[in-house]
Simulated assay, not measured.
Amino acid sequence: MAALAWLLIPLVAVLVATVWGSWAARTRATGDGSSLADYERFREAMQKSHSG
Rank of each mutant, 00 (worst) to 15 (best):
M1K: 06
M1S: 07
M1W: 00
A2L: 12
A3I: 06
A3N: 05
A3T: 04
A3Q: 05
L4S: 12
L4Q: 05
L4F: 05
L4D: 08
A5P: 00
W6R: 15
W6F: 12
L7R: 13
L7P: 06
L8V: 07
L8F: 12
I9K: 15
I9L: 15
I9Q: 12
P10Q: 11
P10T: 10
P10S: 13
P10W: 12
L11G: 06
L11S: 02
V12R: 08
V12Q: 04
A13L: 08
A13R: 09
A13F: 00
V14P: 01
V14F: 06
V14Y: 04
L15K: 09
L15Y: 08
V16S: 13
V16C: 15
A17F: 10
T18M: 00
T18N: 00
V19T: 10
V19E: 06
W20C: 04
W20L: 11
W20G: 02
S22E: 11
W23N: 07
W23G: 03
W23H: 08
A24V: 15
A24I: 09
A24D: 14
R26F: 02
R28H: 13
R28M: 12
R28T: 13
R28W: 12
R28P: 14
R28Y: 14
R28E: 13
A29L: 05
A29H: 03
T30Q: 14
G31C: 04
G31L: 04
G31K: 06
D32H: 10
D32W: 05
G33I: 02
G33R: 07
S34M: 05
S35Y: 03
S35E: 14
S35R: 15
L36Q: 11
L36Y: 03
L36V: 03
L36N: 08
A37K: 14
A37R: 13
D38K: 12
D38F: 06
D38A: 15
Y39K: 10
Y39M: 12
Y39P: 01
Y39F: 07
E40G: 01
E40P: 00
E40Q: 08
R41H: 01
R41S: 03
R41L: 01
R41A: 07
F42P: 02
F42G: 07
R43H: 10
R43Y: 07
R43L: 14
E44K: 15
E44C: 03
E44A: 14
E44L: 12
E44Q: 15
E44T: 10
E44N: 15
A45L: 06
A45N: 05
M46N: 09
M46W: 02
M46L: 10
Q47I: 11
Q47F: 08
Q47L: 15
K48G: 03
K48M: 02
S49H: 01
H50W: 08
S51Y: 05
S51C: 04
S51L: 10
S51H: 11
G52F: 00
G52D: 00
G52K: 01
G52P: 01
